[in-house]
Nucleic acid binder design. Sequence first.
DNA 1: TCATTAACACGGG
DNA 2: CCCGTGTTAATGA
Length: 208
Amino acid sequence: MIQELKQYFAASFEPALIEEMNRVGTFMEVPEGADLIKPGQYIRSIPLLLEGSIKILRPDAEGEELLLYHLERGETCAMSMTCCLSDVRSEIHAVAETDVRLLMIPVSKMEYWSSKYKSWRHFVMDSYHIRLMELLESIDNIAFNNMDTRLMHYLEEKVKILNNTHIDITHKEIAADLHTSRVVVSRLLKKMENDGVIRLHRSAIEML
DNA sequence: TCATTAACACGGG
DNA sequence: CCCGTGTTAATGA
């Protein structure tokens, strides 16, 4: 475990901090598709992503959702930091996009480390910055792009995350993430197939 | 024009 | 049979 932490974080954290993370953190494995954080839930610890990818969704009043961004290795959820520190409920829904391995850090340590370790302060600030930028990108995408470009971005992101051009997903699931109807997804995907960009299979898409 | 909703047919597991 | 998919028709922004 400590080896793994060193491997991923030696470049960003002091050895003493890595040692402490190893001591107070709780190691967790979460299977693909499982909920990590449900909307409205209180958060008591901060997840540090060691392996895999997490998708962050924003639910609306009717419980319909919209994909905001993905978290990847070495990143953390800025949302959980603010929730922990101010003791408010989560505004977002976090789902494991792949099998995920996490290190859970207790909230108390988060504040303590901020005063003790310069690298941790940097990490926290960077995390906020990265999240804000991802959020802006997401807003741009939703506001300025049509569904066909949004769908293309979505598929490209999937390929990046899975590190595989074969994506196991149904049109219905895509529609849920993009907050649109299945009819639209089916139609656009069919068009992309006709344009030779992708190949469609049952419950799967192959990017070309 | 493009998205949504409802409805239907087809085929595979 | 149920689910995923492809398509159409009507309606709306």
